[in-house]
């Protein structure tokens, strides 16, 4: 309130604003550049003349992309994986974090130890692969993409810390009124935890959306590939085609820079669009978690 009335602009404000504007430009520039590339005609792209607005404006690239069924199939897959994955991840995270937030849970320390352990050590690629594909038989199913990374230790810890901040008295009152544990969790705790739920959803959604490695190793059929794999192949794969060992020309052919940038723009769009809506919870959720932690 005090600050709102202050009319004089201090030196600090000026410097701060200038720096912040610079930061904004730096963060925005890649997006602008990509968007500009995707809408420019190739001539200017080849000559490297694009900066942050399109030259020789055309939507031709997007038209080509629209016709590419591979892209849309993988796009659909990504949406399915993200939605289902986020719901599952969120549910599992809450169900794990909530009991852990209770001080009277027996063996809490041991459990926490086990969970923390996974933050620093992992079984390695080959055992993990064998587990998922041979023992669990999840290869080539949606589950291989979602389940192995469903719970992020970090997210569990943040959520747990948030739950610890909810006053015990509330829950006790509910218990006295005859509510069981699940009732308390779903009717009392969760409605109070919207910020953390929103934050975690965003974390998980972005994580799954961008994840290419899991799908890459567990999926063998093209109709299951998410859009991240599609993108990786047209960017890194095209690069590789040109650099292939010893410069052997068997992978001739190139993807146009405009196509690459158009597909990047289209696949980054949904996540960017979700962000503003979740943002208000976002800061709150993270801060609460960290402060109390």
């Amino acid at each position: 309130m005090k600050f709102a009335n202050k009319k004089r602009i201090s030196v600090f404000d000026v410097i701060n604003i200038v720096i912040m504007i610079c930061v904004v430009i730096i963060t925005l520039y890649p997006f602008l550049y990509l968007t500009a590339l995707s809408m420019s005609s190739e001539k200017y792209v080849y000559a490297g003349e694009i900066t942050f607005y399109p030259k020789g404006f055309t939507l031709g690239t997007y038209r080509v992309l629209l016709k590419d069924s591979d892209f849309w199939i993988s796009y659909r897959n990504t949406i399915i994986y993200t939605v289902v994955g986020t719901v599952i991840s969120l549910a599992l995270t809450v169900l794990l974090a909530y009991p852990l937030s209770k001080k009277n849970l027996k063996g809490r320390g041991v459990l926490l130890g086990f969970i923390l352990f996974t933050m620093f050590f992992s079984g390695g690629l080959i055992p993990t692969y064998l587990l998922v594909s041979r023992m669990l038989q999840m290869r080539n199913t949606i589950w291989a993409v979602i389940i192995p990374g469903a719970i992020s230790t970090y997210n569990v810890l943040v959520t747990k810390t948030f739950f610890e901040g909810i006053p015990d008295e509330l829950e006790e009152a509910a218990a006295i009124d005859g509510m069981n544990t699940y009732g308390i969790l779903f009717r009392i705790v969760l409605p109070l935890s919207k910020p953390i739920l929103a934050t975690m959803s965003l974390f998980y959604a972005v994580g799954i959306w961008n994840n290419w490695f899991g799908p890459f190793i567990y999926l063998d059929m093209k109709e299951l590939f998410p859009v991240s794999l599609y993108l990786r192949n047209i960017i890194a794969g095209a690069q590789k085609a040109r650099e292939i060992v010893g410069g052997d020309v068997e992978g001739f052919g190139d993807i146009e820079a405009t196509i690459k940038s158009a597909s990047m723009v289209v696949s980054a769009l949904p996540i960017i669009m979700i962000y503003p809506f979740v943002q208000k919870y976002f800061v709150k959720g993270i801060m609460i978690g960290s402060l109390k932690g």
């Binding site: 690629l125 890459f216 190793i217 093209k222 794999l229 960017i235 794969g237 590789k240 085609a241």
Partner: peptide, 18 residues
Amino acid sequence: TIVPMSDYEQKRNLLIST
């Protein structure tokens, strides 16, 4: 088994070793 060219070697090595 379709493998994107970008990381063909990695998946090939993984599949053969497992």
